[in-house]
């Protein structure tokens, strides 16, 4: 009984703690300053950027629309292409990696088979192997197979997510009772059906987490596509903007100052994930803690 009362009383009175709120305010400024900078400066032209005005406030000439237009028309509108590529890589790579992790995690958690302990041990060892260390040999392998400079060169290696398998395994082991599966089997459900209809719905929180981790990882990936792709047309937005930055650092923009486009491009490129995070809050907030099991 006391439980409910306490919980209720805890909920009833919002804790204000003024000093902590002020501290929080400072933290908020720190975390938001780069966003603010990017929003303000995406409205400036080269003169506004470099002319020595206030870096954190708008110049006299606010030209969001002009810069946006410039961004989406520069170099034949290639920026749109990059956004689509990023989306494709993130969705296919992320969903694929999640699907594989779901299957494997379930397999590890619910079946005994020869070689299981060994495989799992290898998996654990692999969790921390940095993906960056695999890029160069994978590149050479792919070049022998003629796969470099194709979308598969980015998507296929993104399917690998050992940590996702580990998370799914831990989750399934503890959250999906064998009794339920056994009951389904007794009811005449096959292995596939008891997986799909009994286990899978219960695995949803973990699936969301793994999906989120894989999508974000693929969306943010830079090293792999940088090494694999040489065709501008296949770049994800990270590599594309990185390339623009390189070009702009050489002052080579052929009349238009690339920096305004780069800043606007940075702003636009972060919007999709921010929207995704804000709208899907309900789904990821709980799931992120999976893996920190007691």
């Amino acid at each position: 009984m006391t439980v409910t009362i306490d919980a209720a009383s805890r909920r009833r009175r919002p804790q204000r703690h003024l000093p902590l709120q002020i501290l929080l305010g400072f933290l908020l400024v720190y975390f938001l300053i780069p966003f603010w900078w990017v929003v303000v400066n995406s409205s400036k032209d080269a003169a506004g950027l470099f002319g020595g005005g206030n870096a954190l406030w708008f110049a006299e000439d606010v030209d969001f629309i002009g810069n946006l237009q410039e961004l989406f028309t520069y170099s034949g509108g290639i920026y749109t292409r990059w956004l689509l590529n990023s989306t494709l890589y993130a969705v296919v790579g992320g969903v694929g990696a999640t699907a594989l992790a779901v299957l494997a995690g379930y397999g590890f958690a619910k079946y005994r088979f020869a070689g299981r302990r060994f495989s799992f041990a290898v998996l654990l060892g692999a969790v921390m192997v940095p993906a960056t260390a695999l890029v160069i040999p994978t590149f050479i392998m792919f070049s022998r197979l003629g796969l470099t400079n194709t979308i598969w060169a980015v998507i296929l290696p993104s399917l690998l997510n050992p940590f996702g398998v580990y998370l799914m395994h831990v989750y399934v082991r503890d959250a999906v009772p064998d009794e339920l599966l056994d009951a389904a089997r007794v009811d005449g459900a096959g292995e596939l059906r008891s997986f799909l209809q009994v286990a899978l719905p219960m695995m949803r929180p973990a699936m969301v987490t793994v999906l989120l981790l894989s999508v974000v990882a693929t969306w943010n990936n830079y090293f792999l596509p940088l090494a694999m792709l040489s065709d501008n047309d296949l770049y994800p937005v990270t590599v594309g903007i990185g390339q623009w930055q390189g070009i702009a650092s050489a002052n080579n923009s052929g009349g238009t100052s690339l920096w305004s486009i780069i800043i606007m491009g940075s702003l636009v490129s972060v919007i999709p994930l921010i929207i995704a995070f804000l709208t899907l809050q309900r789904h990821w907030r709980g799931g992120l803690a999976i893996g920190s099991l007691k």
Binding site: F31, L32, V216, T238, V239, L273, I274, F277
Partner: peptide, 8 residues
């Protein structure tokens, strides 16, 4: 939010 920003 910064988590949603690519490192690049």
């Amino acid at each position: 939010l910064p988590y949603a920003i690519p490192a690049v």
